[in-house]
Simulated scan of single mutants.
Amino acid sequence: MMKKLNALVTTVGIMASGAAMAGSFSDYDLDKDGAISKSEAAVSEQLIQVFDDLDINKDGQLSKQEFNK
């Protein structure tokens, strides 16, 4: 369990730095519907790698709150 937690923390840290380089939530929300779909996230290898971990409610989309965690 601790290994998974450490991996998640590391991955989220990488994703956060990637998001900072790539821009903001609105840069990924290409259709401007207030959510990032998996297809929208696919423009970032880092974001797509952590997408399922960030999708807390498992609805297949990232809300702004989920993205900023």
Score class of each variant (00 low, 15 high):
M1Y: 14
M1D: 08
M2D: 13
K3P: 04
K3N: 12
K3Y: 05
K4S: 08
K4R: 15
L5Y: 08
N6T: 06
A7P: 02
A7R: 10
A7Y: 04
A7N: 11
L8R: 11
L8H: 10
T10Y: 05
T10S: 12
T11R: 14
T11Q: 14
T11G: 13
V12P: 01
G13F: 08
G13T: 03
G13S: 07
I14P: 03
M15P: 00
A16R: 13
A16F: 06
A16T: 06
S17A: 12
S17N: 12
S17F: 04
G18R: 10
G18F: 04
A19H: 05
A19D: 02
A20W: 06
A20Q: 12
A20S: 14
M21D: 07
M21F: 08
M21K: 15
M21T: 12
A22N: 13
A22I: 02
A22V: 03
G23T: 02
G23V: 03
G23D: 03
S24P: 01
F25C: 00
F25M: 03
S26N: 08
D27A: 06
D27F: 01
Y28I: 04
Y28D: 00
Y28E: 00
L30P: 02
L30E: 06
L30S: 12
D31Q: 12
D31K: 15
D31S: 09
K32L: 14
K32F: 08
K32P: 03
K32A: 14
D33P: 12
D33N: 15
D33H: 15
D33K: 15
D33W: 07
G34Y: 06
G34H: 10
G34E: 05
A35C: 04
A35W: 10
A35Y: 11
A35T: 10
A35E: 04
I36E: 00
S37C: 06
S37D: 07
K38M: 14
E40G: 13
E40D: 01
E40R: 10
A41T: 06
A42V: 02
A42K: 13
V43I: 15
V43C: 11
V43A: 14
V43N: 11
S44V: 01
S44E: 02
S44H: 01
S44M: 03
E45L: 09
E45M: 08
Q46T: 08
Q46A: 07
Q46Y: 03
Q46C: 00
L47W: 00
L47T: 04
Q49A: 06
Q49H: 01
Q49R: 04
Q49M: 00
Q49L: 02
V50C: 05
V50K: 00
F51E: 01
F51I: 05
D52T: 12
D52S: 15
D52G: 07
D52P: 13
D53C: 05
D53W: 08
D53M: 07
D53H: 08
D55M: 09
D55N: 14
I56P: 01
I56C: 04
N57T: 08
N57H: 11
N57D: 15
N57E: 14
N57A: 10
K58G: 07
K58A: 14
D59H: 05
D59P: 04
G60M: 07
G60K: 10
Q61M: 11
Q61W: 12
L62P: 02
L62E: 02
L62N: 03
S63P: 10
S63E: 06
S63N: 13
K64Y: 01
K64C: 03
Q65L: 07
Q65I: 10
E66F: 06
E66C: 11
E66G: 10
F67N: 01
F67W: 07
N68I: 07
N68Y: 08
K69G: 13
